[in-house]
Amino acid sequence: MPEPVLPDPPVTPAPLFETAVVAGVGLIGGSVAMGLRQRFLARRVIGLDASMDVLREAEALGLVDEVRPGPGEWLREADLVVLAAPMRALIPLARELAPYLNPAALVTDVGSVKGGISAEMERLGVRGFVAGHPMAGSERGGVTHANAALLENAVWVLTPTDHTPLTALSRARTLVEHLGAAPVVMPPDAHDALVATVSHLPYLASLALTHMVARDERLSLLAAGGFRDLTRVASGDPRMSRDMVVENRTALKEALARFRRQLERLEADLDEPEELLAAAHEGKRTRDSLPVVKRSLLPQKHDLVVAVPDRPNQIGAVTQALGAAGVNIKDIEVLAIREEGGALRLGLESTEAVAHAAQILRAEGFEVRGRA
């Protein structure tokens, strides 16, 4: 009697990292952890956080493979460490982890201010550090709202210093690209000056406007969509937002001075209608020319990532198996191909479709990952 033909074992793409540690598993840290797992970028993802509740939630959501409540010798196994604590806790976290870091590891962060952490990591002698800031976020904080799609198509600023090894910067760029984001490189002080204007100043402006409404309840009756859009960032976490702007106060004070001059100019233009019209045209041209960053977080998508070997007809094998079972694929993306294969991201209609597709593809010998 002939031997039964067994299906080939699932093929997993060669990971960029063997062991990745995400220290601080909140909205951004959790999204990075999810991206590392979904896109097969790390063989093992460990979540490090002082809160056991957060760690249990991250594990239950499938964002991490393991959890740890504190640093120790186990950290030396990590070849990627992502510092994702809130701004006020970022430097203390770096000091706590530094004695245990593998000298060969890539270390990065996701903080919104770069000068302080860059200087501190140099003082601590962490050679493989590349400061980073993904320009992504949500008013809904916490690990429960983590989503790898939050990072897709986002600008991710990397801010090396004169002491940053080129190999570390290259590895950081590769990581960012494989997470689906767009790396932009600039010095730390240039980054901090720019975000003071485009991120931190709008937060203070939204606070000022909301305070005006709070002090006159008649205004709240008339605060329509435009006002709500303009003050959206005031809905963020107050403590985290406070820490963010205070950390960048030097650059932010300079931006505030420029903003006051702009307001004074516009006030004067109220008596010069043609000047005000010219200012309005300039504002419209500038606003209309801003790039629209389309992220898949909104509207919600239900994604399944499928590991595939680097050989012909693998996309066809996946789509034919799902099509035969009546699973409708709404979107498909080929993720980066690596040594032992690559991955496909499938956008499906619902959580039920994700579960059904996963069952079908596993039966066909594919390894799948996803979160509906």
Rank of each mutant, 00 (worst) to 15 (best):
G128F: 03
G128N: 08
G128H: 04
F129A: 10
F129S: 02
F129P: 01
F129C: 02
V130T: 11
V130Y: 00
V130R: 04
V130G: 08
V130F: 03
V130S: 07
A131H: 04
A131L: 01
A131M: 07
A131N: 03
A131K: 02
G132V: 02
G132C: 04
G132Q: 00
G132K: 01
H133N: 11
H133V: 10
H133T: 09
H133P: 04
P134D: 03
P134R: 00
P134N: 08
P134Y: 08
P134L: 08
P134F: 02
P134Q: 02
M135P: 06
M135R: 05
M135N: 01
M135Q: 09
M135T: 02
A136L: 06
A136H: 10
A136Y: 03
A136P: 01
A136G: 09
A136D: 05
A136W: 00
G137L: 04
G137N: 13
G137P: 05
S138W: 00
E139V: 15
E139L: 07
E139N: 15
E139M: 07
E139P: 03
E139Y: 04
R140E: 14
G141L: 08
G141F: 09
G141H: 11
G141D: 10
G141R: 13
G142W: 05
G142N: 03
G142E: 10
G142D: 09
V143W: 06
V143F: 08
T144L: 15
T144D: 08
T144W: 14
T144I: 13
H145K: 07
H145L: 01
H145T: 09
A146W: 10
A146T: 13
N147S: 15
A148N: 06
A148M: 14
A148G: 15
A149V: 05
A149L: 14
A149R: 12
L150R: 12
L150F: 09
L150V: 01
L150E: 07
L151A: 02
L151P: 09
L151M: 11
L151I: 03
E152Y: 12
E152C: 05
N153L: 04
N153F: 12
N153G: 04
A154G: 09
A154L: 09
A154I: 08
A154Q: 03
A154D: 05
A154P: 11
A154Y: 08
V155A: 14
V155L: 15
W156I: 06
W156S: 10
V157R: 09
V157F: 05
V157W: 05
V157N: 06
V157K: 11
V157M: 09
V157L: 08
L158Q: 04
L158E: 13
L158K: 09
T159A: 12
T159I: 03
P160D: 14
P160A: 07
P160W: 05
T161R: 12
T161L: 10
T161M: 01
D162G: 13
D162E: 11
D162V: 07
D162F: 11
D162I: 01
H163Q: 14
H163R: 15
H163Y: 03
T164Q: 07
T164I: 08
T164K: 06
T164R: 12
P165A: 02
P165N: 06
P165I: 03
L166V: 10
L166M: 13
L166A: 15
L166P: 12
L166N: 10
L166D: 15
